[in-house]
Every structure is written in C-alpha cells, then in structure tokens.
Amino acid sequence: MSESRKRRSLFTIGWREWVELPDFDGTRIKAKIDTGARTSAVHAWKIEAFERDGEKWVRFELHPKQKNNTHRVPCEARVLDERLIRSSNGQITRRYVIRTRLKLGNRTWPIDLTLSRRDEMGFRMLLGRTALRGRTLIDAAASYLCGD
C-alpha cells in the first residue's frame, strides 16, 4: 500500500476523545490520547484475579465518570498478560493486561488495556500509541473530533 493511500485510511482524532468500551456494557469514558505511553490504561477498582476453565481471568469495576465514584460498571475479562509498567512519575507497578474492543467515532477495533488505579489522574482512561498506530492521526490542538 502506498504512503498516500495509508494516510487516507487514517482518521484524525483530538488530544482527548470520548471512547466506548462495547465489551463492558458500552461504557463511555473520556480518554486522553498519549503517544508517550506505549500501553493504554483504564481506571479500575476492586481488581481480583480468578480462574475460569483453566485460564486466568480478572474481575473489576470501572468508574467511568470523572470525579464520580458512585457510577460503577462490574466487568470480567480474560487476562492476556501481566506487565511491569512505568508510570509518568517513574513508579513501576505490575498490571493485568486484557484485550477488549474500543469504539472511537464510528470505528471499532481490539486493544490491549492495563487495569490501574488512576485516582489522581485527570482522565479515567489513557490511550497509548500501540492502540492508535496505523489507524489515527492526532491533532494536538483539537478535542472531541469524534463526537461527544
């Protein structure tokens, strides 16, 4: 595929966007687009690993609304991996990695997502470059280009 054809297949997003997680009750979360982060992360509470049919799974709660811990979405997902992740403050933590679908605008695709407490962060979700590579162009001056 030519470089110009590849560029035409990309769609433009802003530095923050509303995203949907169809596998988790269609939960909508305001996400920060962060090309400095390799992996995407979502704010999760009550993270608890368990086994199902010989595989490792995780149960957790999403609190998708900023500054609101009363709206909770119970979730379960198969564990894809466990990774050591270095946060923006340099702290290294072990996190569960799951694979789920992300809907951004009218497009949906699978992403790897780490489960993390993001209480002190400005956004409940961070979309890293791996989830966006080959699909999007980012307009750092724009917000919510995919709708609100």
Rank of each mutant, 00 (worst) to 15 (best):
R129A: 09
K56Y: 07
L126E: 04
T108K: 08
Q66G: 03
E51K: 11
I85D: 06
R107A: 14
S40D: 01
K32A: 08
T27C: 07
L137D: 12
G122C: 00
R124K: 12
H43G: 01
S143I: 07
T39D: 06
R72V: 12
G14W: 03
R133W: 10
V97T: 09
P74N: 08
I111M: 10
E61A: 00
E82T: 14
T100H: 05
K6M: 14
E55I: 10
E61Y: 06
K65H: 12
K32Q: 09
D81Q: 13
F50S: 08
G105I: 09
F50I: 11
R117D: 13
M1Y: 10
K65V: 13
Y96W: 07
R99N: 06
D53G: 11
F123M: 10
W109H: 06
D34L: 01
R16M: 11
L21E: 01
I98D: 02
E76N: 05
Y96Q: 08
K32P: 05
Q66R: 15
V42M: 04
C146A: 13
Y96H: 12
N69I: 07
L10P: 15
R133L: 13
R16E: 15
S40M: 03
K46I: 00
L84Q: 05
K46M: 08
W15T: 13
L102Y: 03
R133C: 12
M121R: 01
R135T: 01
T93C: 06
V19C: 11
R8W: 13
T130H: 11
R94G: 09
E48M: 14
H71K: 12
D53F: 06
H43K: 02
W15H: 13
N106I: 10
A44M: 00
I138W: 00
E48K: 14
W18G: 12
A31K: 00
F50N: 06
V73S: 03
Y144D: 14
N89S: 10
W109Y: 05
S87D: 09
R124L: 05
